[in-house]
Design a protein around this nucleic acid. Structure first.
Lengths: 323, 323
DNA sequence: CCTGGTAATTCTCAAAATGAGTATAATAAC
DNA sequence: GTTATTATACTCATTTTGAGAATTACCAGG
């Protein structure tokens, strides 16, 4: 009996508030009552003229939000990781990234959740996070050694080194998905345990403490990882940050927002130089007095750059110590 | 009556032979007998464990090829541009990019087709192509003026300027899809005429001379544009070119391949410097004598870079005249 | 009014990277 | 040999980085 295919539309809606990147979640309800989910719903070809319009409709329905910036991320369709409750319908997941200005919340049951609660190993603003040192690296080392064959061990070690950085290879902030997938494979996130359950259509809630970081429903943590990776990459050559900032902002606010997303600290003076030399912003005459020290000038995004240069992004001046 | 959804898997299989990027096509058969199609087939959730495996299966069946490098591009799902022959089934298209070494062809009815026959405005290796000057720019100017309102005219002019370059904005080789979509909207490619037919489920072949460049079946030219754009962008930070080259090659062959893909000429000495400094390649001791002048050393790709640097790509040293 | 404290903003300076050539080397054809 | 042709090596001025010092403008407290 041929299985059917249905298509789900999923949204990772990202904002940065108080120097913390957050994602909008809704109660997972029927899917899994222990964890939150990203807003999502099935594509209905009658009502939805395009995939993106379908996504917007679902998001509006579940969170009351009208999205501005929306971008398609990826379409997931592995049978092992996304099967409907009936056990025989394959559910494709078309994932989207949306950027919104800090909390134009959202009554409904929607809630903002810190992204680094879900992907705690991704925040290196205060150096390598505890959880990486104390739990992930040791567990990865175990996973490497657990392979029976030597060739597999070498291959695993190589992968761990590139994705999480090591002596030779530096930390690459964009490899968010690679890292999540590695943790999934190594059994370090709750989802890998869950998906391995013998009867995949029986929804079994797994203790949130089974793995590292807070799990989300379905494969939503994977989608979030995809979203963060894409966002980090694109920041450098598209003026996406401004979707997340208020109309006017100080350069330091801008920097803090970028740092929050990329998960590393940047060199202040050089960041300012890059932003100004790229003519991404223009000063308003106004000052923001509440800085704690000298007042900062308020800037606004210069939309014109879009017509001037091919790839206007913020660029990341390496942080003092980093390579 | 609710429409159904089916999912098609489509492959843009790219190779570079004789300094010309090509894409593998198959006869479109039932879909449209006048034009070629990319290899594609419906996702069958029974046989295909993942989307990518389904794609590989279809490609193998239609072309006899086993793909190595495969990457998902985008999922298209606009109702207006992709509806099944029955007129009521929405057909999602999940598009993939594959890279293969020059023609390990492929009996079957598959044939290689020059990409710049399909997207002729993308090849600027000998300067701005005729077709851009003689047909596209004038037609775009007309399209701009055809708008009744002034604001729309301004907006159209802006878009044309950014996507196709103009006084202020330079040519951005990566905006391949933007350019194709603009031509589609302006009615300059055959597909826009075809899709506007009153009864969209009646397949009407449109004269290939109705527009600029050789059309492909369905929305396959759009997929190809997506593929070329992605490839051009990714070249710079991932060592993709080597998927297209034989095991050993001269630096000039490497350069010609990159130029073929990006569609511009590069500065020879500086290209060599970038490639060597990036330690992307290592010399074999062998020489290639048939250069027409001094023999060139043969190089091979250093796979180790993948473990050393986060984003190893070739980098494009601006061509002499270009900005 | 003067004195720190705290940030914002401006400058400096050496070290790389880039753009654009020029010079030299190794072949093949005449 | 001489010449054409291409590979490879070197040069050099100009930008762009990375890193940090110096200066400026406000606040709070004496």
């Amino acid at each position: 009996m041929p299985r059917a295919v249905t298509v789900g539309l999923h949204a990772a809606i990202v904002a940065v508030t108080e120097e913390e990147p957050r994602v909008l979640t809704v109660p997972a309800g029927a899917v899994d009552r222990r964890v939150a989910a990203l807003p999502f719903g099935p594509l209905d070809p009658d009502r939805h003229r395009t995939l993106e319009l379908g996504l917007r409709a679902w998001v509006h329905e579940q969170t009351g939000m009208d999205l501005a910036y929306v971008e398609q991320l990826y379409t997931f369709g592995d049978r092992d990781r996304a099967v409907a409750a009936d056990g025989r319908t394959l559910v494709l997941a078309v994932a989207y990234l949306a950027l919104v200005r800090e909390r134009q919340v959202a009554g409904h049951a929607a809630a903002w959740q810190g992204i680094y609660g879900v992907l705690p190993w991704e925040d290196r603003r205060d150096g390598e996070p505890q959880i990486l040192r104390d739990r992930i690296r040791p567990a990865l080392a175990e996973w490497v050694d657990a392979a029976p064959e030597d060739s597999v061990r070498r291959e695993r070690r190589g992968r761990a080194d590139i994705t999480f950085g090591s002596g030779a290879a530096p930390w690459d902030s964009e490899r968010v998905l690679d890292r999540y997938e590695l943790l999934y494979e190594a059994g370090l996130v709750a989802e890998s345990v869950r998906d391995r359950e013998p009867a995949p259509h029986v929804v079994r809630a797994v203790s949130p403490h089974a793995g590292v970081g807070a799990p989300l429903a379905l494969d939503h943590r994977r989608i979030l990882a995809t979203a963060l990776g894409r966002l980090r990459g694109k920041l450098k050559y598209r003026p996406l940050v401004f979707e997340l900032l208020p109309d006017t902002f100080t350069l330091f606010q801008l920097q803090r927002t970028v740092e929050a997303l990329v998960g590393v600290r940047l060199h202040k003076q050089n960041f300012r130089r890059l932003v100004e030399r790229g003519s991404l912003v223009e000063g308003t005459a106004q000052l923001e007095p509440d800085t704690g020290g000298r007042p900062a000038e308020l800037f606004r995004f210069r939309r014109e750059v879009l017509h001037e240069r091919p790839a206007p992004g913020v660029g990341l001046p390496g942080l003092p110590g980093g390579h």
